[in-house]
Every structure is written in C-alpha cells, then in structure tokens.
C-alpha cells in the first residue's frame, strides 16, 4: 500500500489519475481503515486530503454556509457559524460514534459511506445541501438524492472523484430544522431510528416541510406523503400526529437483532416525526416544547 499526503485539490486529481482507479481518498478514515482490513473495500493507494487548507474551511459565502469536506465533525459542531444557523446539524454531528470519532471523522465521509442511519448525514439531508464534486472532467454540484446508490453504497467513486465542500443555504427567519434520534445508548451506537426535518412556518401554518427518516430504506428517506400533506396545515399536535402516520407510508424499516424490530420501528417512527416537528415549532416560538 502507498500513502500519499495531498497538499492541494490539483494534487489529489493528479494522484487519482496516476493510480488509475486503484486509489481511495481518505479523510478521517474511521470507517475506511476497518473496511480495508476486513476486505470490504480495496485500495492500493490512500490519498490523505486532510491537509489541504481549502478543504478545512468553514465559512459563510453568498447566503450559503460552506463546509470543507475535510472539516471534522468536531470542527463543525463547535463552529460558531454552524451553531448559529444549524443547531440540528450540531446535535447530529455530536451523535456520530463518540467525541473521539468526531475529532477525525468528517461530514463528507458521513455522507459518502452512505450508511442509512448516519446521523450527521441525516440531519444534513433536509438542509438542502449541495455537494461540490471535482474530478478529471471538472467541478459539479450534486443534491442529496444524487448521493446514495444503496445501503452503504455511494454514487461517488472515491477512486476518481473528490468532494471538496458542502454548501448549505442559510435558513430564513421563519425556517428551522430539527433532528430526533431514538437510541439504545447515547454514544458508540447507531440509532434505532432518526428523523430530520426542516420547515418554514408562516402565521401558524407550515409553508413547506422537508422530512427525512432512517434507517427505513436507502439513505435518508423522504417522507413525501407527509411533506406534501403538511403544506398549509396548522402547526398543532394533531397535525404532527397525522404527519407521523403519513410518514409510515414511505418507510420500510427492517428488523435488526439489536436496534429494534420492524414493528417497534414502525410504532415509534410517528413519535419521532411528531417530536421533530414539535422541535421546529418550539425553535420558531410557535409552540412550547
């Protein structure tokens, strides 16, 4: 195995080209190192991108918060701008593994590993993020639904493409986001369920809602039925409950030997949806938490 430390994006592209598909980009490596050892993933060359200054940046640019792909979860959840605009993302980043994992793992990695229940990726998914990707052919932007190919499979080929940053539109005054997690243990555990939501509320009614849930399918699954139904609905306990039931229509949870049966996940998903919507209403001072 060869280990290359890249100092710029251009260098990454050169290294990738040289390796001809046998390389893998490495940021935190908290999953990749174990996956290579277990044979789940293969890489002859590792390209460490964590020393590229522009990939570490977290900044506000033209109405967007831009998070460099090599910024660690700790750097993200402790950053004043992230704390100011996206408390739900802060909450979720703090749920990945433990602080020791967050100190090296990245948000980009949380998306690229494509584990359906990845907390940070889930909270991010409803924030309308744009993923900036660079490869031989140039730079392009992708949306959440472009990123997930299957359970634990990303559309992004880490042997050819580099994610450089994640751009998140800043919320307007009447918008807020939330993240709820049903967990057997606060740390060092994957969730039984997690739900992320973002909404705009005007005059006590939902203008629009983005609602996603996991692990109930591939990646962060949209609760389309609930999202559509919620538009124009009064912000109330009854509305949340109905939305929770509708969310089930897009959810197909599986039984896990540890993290809950299908029945349990179905029984509690509406509760998590309800709590996620309540969390938004509370943040926007429409209801009391």
């Amino acid at each position: 195995m060869k280990y290359l430390i890249a100092n710029s994006t251009t260098e990454v592209l050169e290294f990738l080209k040289e390796a001809g598909g046998t390389a893998s980009i490495l940021a935190g490596g908290t999953d990749l190192v174990l996956d290579i050892e277990s044979g789940k993933k293969k890489a002859d060359v590792l390209i460490d991108v964590t020393r590229i200054p522009e990939l570490k940046k977290i900044e506000e640019v033209d109405g967007f918060l831009e998070i460099g792909a090599a910024a660690t979860l700790t750097e993200i959840h402790s950053h004043p701008l992230v704390r100011k605009y996206f408390p739900s993302l802060v909450k979720a980043c703090k749920k990945v593994g433990s602080r020791l994992i967050q100190n090296v793992a990245t948000l980009a990695g949380n998306v690229i590993t494509a584990q359906p229940a990845a907390d940070a990726g889930m909270a991010l998914s409803v924030l309308d993020p744009r993923f900036v990707l660079v490869d031989e052919e140039g730079t392009r932007e992708c949306y959440v639904d472009d990123m997930y190919a299957g359970f634990g499979v990303s559309t992004l080929d880490s042997g050819r493409t580099l994610m450089t940053k994640i751009r998140i539109p800043l919320p307007k005054e009447n918008e807020a986001a939330s993240f709820q997690r049903l967990e057997l243990r606060k740390s060092l555990s994957l969730p039984m369920l997690n739900v992320a939501a973002m909404a705009a509320i005007k005059e006590g009614k939902f203008e629009w809602v983005r609602l996603r849930m996991a692990p109930v399918g591939k990646g962060p699954v949209r609760a389309v039925e609930a999202e559509e139904w919620l538009v124009g609905k009064e912000v109330s306990e009854e509305t949340f409950e109905r939305a929770g039931e509708l969310a089930l229509e897009n959810a197909n949870p599986r039984s896990n030997p540890l993290r809950g049966s299908k029945e349990y996940r179905e029984a509690t998903l509406p509760v998590m949806v309800k709590r996620a919507l309540l969390e938004i209403a509370t943040q926007l001072n429409v209801m009391e938490g």
Binding site: S98, L184, R185, S187, L188, S189, L258
Partner: peptide, 11 residues
Amino acid sequence: YHKYMLPTMDE
C-alpha cells in the same frame, strides 16, 4: 462494543 449496549459514561 458497538453491538453490545453496556453503559457508557453519559448513561
């Protein structure tokens, strides 16, 4: 350990 739910410090 991540598949065995013994208590962590925050529990």
